[in-house]
Computed example of a mutant assay.
Amino acid sequence: MIFTYSLCHAVIDLVHWRDPKKSGVVFGVSLLLLLSLAAFSVISVVSYLLLALLCVTISFRIYKSVIQAVQKSNDGHPFKALMEKDVTVPPETFRKHVDVCLTHVNHVLKQMSRLFLVEDLVDSLKLAVVMWLLTYVGAVFNGITILILADILLFSVPPIYEKNKTQIDRYIDVARTQVNTTIAKLQEKLPGSLKRCKAE
């Protein structure tokens, strides 16, 4: 739970650009990765990334070996400190994260069951409308394009919202009132038995 809380805080700090250098690096890398996936297959992108990493580490190792040979020093392996670090995942930590994931998965499954088995007609109709709208989005964009747009929005909307919070909140309140009014009108037109179910 503490890990999830700290992770959420780290993500919030990144998207709000609290540390511009760190946010810039994460945004640049994530956008570059998504653009690479749009142009190449996942296997190619992963292979090129690992190959680039290997080239850097091998070059650094050779460079350090040459420097040690020229200076006749005995510094040892350049990555010794990193190799001595424990990179294994303790079973308790793994179980804890699995339990957190399982809680979220069970919540999602419960909600999906409720929506698809029409426990609440209005909520199921809302889902149907969203899915219908997504068919049009899917016809225009593919999945990777949506992820690229989501990445750009994730790093641009929070700072814009922080600067124009009052105006945006006012527009959101107006939109929410309109949506609630429309839903109320639709509920009035539902048959009596369905209205009673909604009221309960």
Results as ranks from 00 to 15, higher is better:
P158G: 01
L134W: 14
L127S: 07
L127N: 08
E162A: 10
M131L: 15
I146Q: 11
F155A: 04
K126L: 06
K126T: 13
V140D: 02
N142M: 02
K163E: 11
P158V: 09
L153Q: 05
I160V: 12
L134D: 13
V105L: 10
P159N: 04
V137M: 05
M112Q: 09
K110Y: 10
L147Y: 14
V137R: 05
I152W: 00
L109A: 13
L109I: 12
K126C: 07
Q111I: 12
H107M: 08
L154P: 06
K126G: 10
L127A: 09
V129F: 11
E162M: 11
A150L: 05
D123E: 13
V122S: 03
L117P: 01
K163W: 04
R114C: 03
M112W: 14
E162Q: 15
M131Q: 12
L153D: 07
N164P: 02
N164K: 13
V129I: 15
T166G: 01
T145Y: 01
F116S: 04
G143L: 03
D151T: 12
F116H: 14
G138T: 09
G143N: 12
V105S: 02
A150C: 03
Y136F: 15
K165P: 04
R114F: 11
A150F: 11
L154N: 10
F116R: 13
L149K: 01
W132L: 13
F155H: 12
T135K: 06
L154G: 13
A150Y: 14
Q111L: 10
N142V: 06
L133H: 04
E119V: 04
N106A: 05
V129C: 08
F116P: 02
M112A: 11
V108N: 02
V108D: 06
A139N: 15
